[in-house]
Design a protein around this nucleic acid. Structure first.
Length: 428
RNA sequence: GGAGAGGUGGCAGAGCGGUUGAAUGCACCGGUCUUGAAAACCGGCAAGGGCUAGCGCCCUUCGAGGGUUCGAAUCCCUCCCUCUCCGCCA
């Protein structure tokens, strides 16, 4: 949510920045509603103040043993007027709230203009695209040869966009998640968290998935409705919802390994082959809760933590600064990490690291107490994948594939694979 | 699932329907004292919103939502959550 103060004082500027990311804000409509709100609020508060003073004087008169009948008569229909004013104010408020929840975050100053991923800026590159001395197979072929990934049997169970993994590939998938978690805990100072995979709509609203993107999430049919988390960002970030965090604990750094569930409602026909885009996938998620003046640094650091995994696995990647049009709803600045996939001969997103400023914090009422002022201030939230486990598995399979279809196990994963150095073909 | 207890400020914990936005303690901030620290003492200290150039004034908030009343933290209803005991269970 944007600062309502900013919307009141600098509406045109806000509208301009929102236009950068393709959001049209109807200035006149908003200004009119806001004026109406102000008028009604003033009126309501005046009526309330009058009621309060009169009621108080009734109490005092009664305490002195005076006759309160005439006073009661005076109050008359004050209550009815007040009730009517309140109801009208509530309607306008709801309308404004709805608009506010619908508005995406403002892009940060450094964010390039643009509409889609073609306008993203490459910030840096690590490693060279893997050169294979043979025609590279993609992970679907490799998975088949290893009898390690089965999309058909998954479709039987669950329909499209699911996978069943088996044997060494399943183990490699687990190894990756373990390795990532351990590295973030041991080397990057994150606190490991185990969190619910089903959350209430308040949590989804806190991080910005609701109310606007309900069609992207799986929901339960019980009451209250719960949502399958589309990312651990939701439970991890909402840990501080309605909290006032102690200054000396900042920044909070959380890491969790969870499954993620996405409807992929708008992705018909996109990435239908293989495991790139699934309804269910595992991810190791990093979240930091920071103060306003450290958030930028924390964002850079967190991005580095995600990069460190790719570097340790020696997977070539590049870092992209997303343009305004390609950023997620709640983000003010986002770096995507894109890993090289030999099977596609392309860089593909494997992590997205964003700074949300106070956008999510305002929705969540997440604050910290600034010792300088003694006052609570909104926290800034940052998160990123560190990394998407399924896509990392794909990257390992494709970048470490051998001519015969076997796959070398990257060195840091071998301890997690019982010392194995290679995933052999079945029967080999 | 059955029975009971409870949800109040950063935390703990009081609170007859009417100067209670809320006692008290802790924590925190400032001051006195001290070579320094601690202790002691004095003072301050909720959040959100509106109006104002500012001093400041006003409104709202005691789990959530309704209701009774001139007036609700206090009474009534519904819901949520927590705790204890029993049952069941990974």
């Amino acid at each position: 949510m944007l600062d309502p103060q900013l919307l009141r004082t600098d509406l045109e500027h806000v509208a301009g920045r929102l236009a950068m990311r393709g959001y049209h804000l109807d200035i006149e409509n908003y200004a009119a509603l806001e004026a109406r709100r102000k008028e009604l609020q003033t009126k309501t508060e005046e009526l309330q103040a009058e009621r309060n003073t009169r009621s108080k004087s009734i109490g005092q008169a009664k305490a002195r043993g005076e006759d309160i009948e005439p006073l009661l008569a005076e109050v008359g229909r004050l209550g009815d007027d007040l009730k009517a004013a309140k109801e009208e104010l509530e309607k306008v408020r709801e309308h404004l709230d709805h608009l506010a929840l619908d508005m995406p975050n403002l892009p940060a100053g450094q964010v390039p203009e643009g509409h889609d991923e073609s306008d993203n800026e490459e910030v840096r590159r690590w490693g060279e695209p893997t050169a294979l001395a043979f025609e590279p197979r993609d992970h679907v072929e490799i998975g088949e040869m290893l009898e390690g990934i089965d999309f058909e049997v998954a479709a039987k169970l669950s329909g499209s966009r699911f996978a069943v993994m088996a044997g060494d590939v399943a183990r490699l998938h687990r190894a990756l998640a373990q390795f990532m978690l351990d590295m973030h805990i041991r080397e990057h100072g994150y606190r490991e968290m185990y969190v619910p995979y089903l959350v209430l709509d308040s949590a989804m609203q806190g991080t910005g998935q609701l109310p606007k993107f309900a069609e992207d999430a799986f929901a339960t049919s019980d009451d209250p409705t719960r949502y399958l988390i589309p990312t651990a960002e939701v439970p991890l970030t909402n840990l501080v919802a309605d909290e006032i965090v102690d200054a000396d604990r900042m920044p909070l750094k959380f890491v969790a390994h969870t499954p993620c569930f996405r409807r992929e409602a708008g992705a018909y026909g996109k990435d239908t082959r293989g495991m790139i885009r699934q309804h269910q996938f595992d991810k190791v998620e990093l979240v930091q809760i920071a103060t306003a003046d450290t958030a930028e640094d924390c964002h850079e650091a967190l991005t580095g933590h995600a990069e460190a995994i790719l570097q340790a696995l020696e997977l070539p990647y590049r870092v992209m600064l997303l343009c305004a049009g390609d950023m997620g709803f709640s983000a003010r600045k986002t770096y995507d990490l894109e890993v090289w996939l030999p099977g596609q001969q392309a860089y593909r997103e494997i992590s997205s690291c964003s700074n949300f400023g106070d956008f999510q914090a305002r929705r969540m009422k997440a604050r910290w107490r600034n010792p300088d002022t003694g006052k609570p201030e909104l926290v800034h939230t940052i998160n990123g994948s560190g990394l998407a486990v399924g896509r990392t598995l794909i990257a390992v399979l494709e970048n470490y594939q051998q001519r015969d279809g076997s796959v070398i196990v990257p060195e840091p994963l071998r301890d997690y694979m019982g010392g194995r150095e290679r995933i052999p073909l079945p029967g080999d």
